[in-house]
């Protein structure tokens, strides 16, 4: 087996005295589609931000393509980033550019290709996400779901070896979700691209994932509570995992304050601390 594409060891990140990530370790092999699951606010996006190097961990190690990214100089990080694409949760398109220019941006800035070829690539990538003919619109003129798809087209513009996706299918209709899932499958299974997808859309997660991790909430904030293949997760006897993948309101994952705390907060208890 060759070297893992991503290797995270004992990743810890604290914001003030709040520990958001607490000893995360996992590896992603080439061709894997790793799904990161977990409730809202459990640190999924934060974890992703650490892996792509836009946040630095309090302690721990992150290796991408065998290179340690913590403590990398901006130049080294930039070179590494040419090899992966990132699809942001809300697209993060440049508002001042058109859809086409947004997709063309990584090509124009990071390579010397001919404008005609750039044009061709842009059309191909937009066709992939079902947005042919939208090149000349500004991001403000298209819907949120479309923006997301443009973000995906931009992320794969340079044909990266590694694709990060932050909730690629939330806010899309079921058909479009299937299209995006199929696209991710095509890229990973046929082109051997590696993908890391943050998602809490369970249908989509089980469709594309080859490996899954679930982050805990509450007392287990920032820890991995389950890891494995989709089948292992589906048949997991961990009650929190079962509650999450089946979407049950009641279970071990605390979503509401305990009754005492709730009453305290309603009457404005003086010792009640803000979370």
């Amino acid at each position: 087996m060759s070297e893992p594409v991503i290797e995270v060891r004992d990743l810890v990140r604290k914001f003030g005295d709040r520990t958001v990530l607490n000893g995360i370790s996992f590896t992603v092999e080439k061709g894997d589609t790793m799904i990161i699951m977990g409730g809202s606010g459990c640190g999924k996006s934060t974890l992703l931000r650490h892996i792509i190097g836009s946040m630095m961990p309090t302690s721990g190690s992150i290796k991408i393509f065998g290179q340690e990214t913590t403590g990398m100089t901006p130049q080294e990080l930039q070179k590494l980033r040419l090899r992966f694409g990132m699809n942001f949760q809300f697209g993060a398109l440049l508002q001042s550019l058109t859809v086409g220019e947004n997709v063309a941006l990584p090509l124009i800035e990071n390579s010397d290709v001919d404008p005609e070829i750039v044009d061709l690539v842009v059309k191909m990538k937009l066709e992939l996400v079902g947005l042919t003919g939208f090149e000349h619109l500004k991001p403000a003129e298209i819907s949120g779901g479309m923006r997301k798809r443009v973000g995906l087209a931009r992320a794969v513009a340079l044909d990266p070896e590694l694709l990060f996706s932050d909730e690629p299918t939330s806010g899309l209709d079921p058909i479009m979700t299937a299209v995006i899932d199929q696209l991710t499958l095509d890229l990973t299974r046929k082109l051997d691209m590696t993908a890391v997808v943050v998602s809490h859309d369970m249908t989509s997660a089980f469709r594309i994932g080859t490996k899954m991790i679930m982050l805990g909430a509450g007392k287990k904030q920032g820890r991995i509570i389950a890891m494995g293949t989709p089948d292992e997760i589906r048949n997991s006897d961990n009650p929190e995992v079962q509650q999450f993948i089946n979407g049950r309101p009641d279970g071990p994952i605390p979503l509401k304050l305990a009754k005492e705390d709730y009453i305290d907060s309603l009457i404005g208890h003086p010792r009640m601390n803000e979370r």
């Binding site: 993060a92 398109l93 990584p106």
Partner: peptide, 25 residues
């Protein structure tokens, strides 16, 4: 205002992740 709006809407971060230096761009 323009750079600030780009910052809060993650556009600057997106540039960095695309290996485009915001200083240069």
């Amino acid at each position: 205002a323009e750079l600030g709006t780009m910052k809060v809407s993650e556009e600057i971060e997106a540039l960095e992740v695309m290996a485009i230096d915001p200083m240069r761009y």
